[in-house]
Every structure is written in structure tokens, then in C-alpha cells.
Design a protein around this nucleic acid. Structure first.
Lengths: 148, 148
DNA sequence: CACTAATAGGACTGTATCGGTGCTAATTGG
DNA sequence: CCAATTAGCACCGATACAGTCCTATTAGTG
């Protein structure tokens, strides 16, 4: 385990797609269609990514979302935190006073150390790394034809 | 986020306690009492840790659990995997054929790489590291007196 | 040879979180 | 004015998690 949420996985797909054409802007519907993801879910994710400062948005007709930073400046850790909140393996690690055992529990400091290590691991991979691998758009029409 | 399950946290507490006196054996009830954790839960965790090969057990009266390996030979990753299963951040990373987007989704390989990095981070911390910090047993009676 | 103290393993349940959907603004271009 | 699109809630169902309990099985003890 130690799974990331499925939504985070989707968010990564979206961000990688954007990173392939960093200058271009995309509407949520467009991305959902191209990646074969449910469109309301994509809309929700884009809002969260926007709030986290990873995207800029243009409202109204012809609007859409663009990367707020260059692909090499955004890490997987950023995306994970945008969707799931701060990386903290345990309750103890997020703040003090939550854990009843706290005064006698010495593992809190260790978990914080470990959390930082994990965070660092996630931070080594940037969007441009993810985008480098070969790729091609999903053709929904083609897929449906094959399945029917 | 990217939280470990609460049970995993408990399991870590238990293993660290054992690591403080590696030669000694403990009954589940004893550990629950000492750490202030619910006893059935502790029993359940010990069973999982046993199955994972991290503990040895002696049944019957006077029985209990002991560490199967030296404290420095058991890492946090081992404990996490014992409770939560294999560390794999995404469905794609656990095996192939699960993800519908698979043939066109190139991020799978990246997630596997990231999973390994996280695994490695968790592997750097061993039980003896966790056990080194100052510590003293929880006194339930004392706590209750303070709270009342 | 019972009785008691333990582990072994499973089934069951309430609850919280997650994934997903829908609705109602606000904004912009044609 | 209308259509396209983002912004922000509120809601709901399924799933997984934390916790409990019950029934073997095993081993020490009187």
C-alpha cells in the first residue's frame, strides 16, 4: 500500500498532458475527452490544481487552464500535495497535540524525518521527466469501435 | 496526505517497543497495557507482523512474541509492508492490465520509479534508529488521575 | 487430566473517507 | 443576449478502515 489516491493519479496525468505543450491552454472538457477521464472529475481536479497555484485560468468562452510554471519547476510532490494536502505520514507528523500518547511517544520526530525523506523522493521527479516518455492521445472513438 | 494507516503507526510503536529489549518476549496484552493501545487491535497487529516474518511466536501459557531479526535488520518499510501490503503508489505500479488507459499511459513506469524511491526512503530508517530516542512507559493510572 | 493463559484465524460492524455528480453563480467572447 | 467556460458548493453512494468478538489450537500448571 501507501497508495496515492486515484484522483492524484488523474491529476498527474492532466499535469503531464499540459507539460507536453506548456504554452498552450486547455479547457477541462478538452482534457477529459483527450485522456478518456470523466469530465466532472477533471473539472474538479483542475480547480484544486488552480488553487494550489500550479495552474492559471481564463474564464468565459474560449477560456481554459495553463501551467503556471515551467514543467521542470513543478514536481510530483507539488501535484500530490495539491490534491491530498501536506505529505505527513502520521497524525503526529502534521502537528502537535493531536495524539493522546504524545508526551510519551518518541516516534513522532522519527515520522517527521521519514515524511521529509518521502517528500524529497517525490520532489526529485518533475513534470518534464514524466512528459519525456513516448505518448499518444487516446482515441475514444477508436476505442469504442474496438470494444463494440 | 500520503498518510500511512493508523494501524501501521501502532505497529511501528509495537515494533519499537520490542526493539528496546530485543531478547525479551512480550504478550499482546502486556504490550497493549504498556503502550495504552486497545488490546484486541494489538493482538490483530501482532498476528500480521508474525505472518510477515518480522516476529516469532510462542503459544500457550507464558507465550508471547519476539523480534525475528535484530532491530537494525528491520526497517520501517518492512513494518509498513507487513500491515499495508506492498508499497505501490498507483494501481499501475502494482501490476499490469489493471488500468484501462494502460497502452497509452506512459506514466506507469514513472510511478514505479517513484514508488521505489519512496520505498528506499522508508528503508533507510531501522528499528534501532527509532528506538534510540529517549522514552518511558506510559502510566495509564497516572494519566487517568491527571485527566479526572 | 482438567484448567488457564496465550496465540491463530476468521467473521462481523459502524464509520469516515474517497470518488463521483449536480447545481448555481460569475465571467467572457461572439 | 447567448453560449461557453471557470468557481464554488453541497450531496450521495461505495469502499476501505478501525475496531470488536467468537471460536479453535496450543502449552504450561496444579
Amino acid at each position: 500500500m501507501l497508495r496515492i489516491a486515484k484522483l492524484t493519479d488523474y491529476a498527474a496525468l492532466l499535469m503531464v498532458r499540459l507539460a507536453r505543450e506548456p504554452a498552450r491552454c486547455f479547457s477541462a472538457a478538452q482534457l477529459a475527452d483527450e485522456l478518456g477521464l470523466p469530465s466532472p472529475t477533471v473539472a474538479k481536479l483542475m480547480k484544486r490544481l488552480l488553487r494550489a497555484g500550479l495552474l492559471t485560468s481564463v474564464r468565459g468562452a474560449g477560456g481554459g487552464y495553463c501551467l503556471a510554471l515551467a514543467p521542470h519547476a513543478i514536481s510530483v510532490a507539488d501535484v500530490v500535495e495539491a490534491i491530498e494536502g501536506r505529505v505527513a505520514l502520521t497524525e503526529c507528523a502534521v502537528g502537535k497535540g493531536v495524539c493522546a500518547l504524545e508526551p510519551d511517544c518518541a516516534t513522532g520526530a522519527n515520522w517527521q524525518r521519514i515524511s521529509r525523506a518521502v517528500r524529497a523522493a517525490l520532489d526529485t521527479v518533475r513534470l518534464d521527466d514524466m512528459a519525456r516518455t513516448p505518448w499518444q492521445p487516446v482515441r475514444m472513438q477508436g476505442l469504442k469501435e474496438k470494444l463494440s
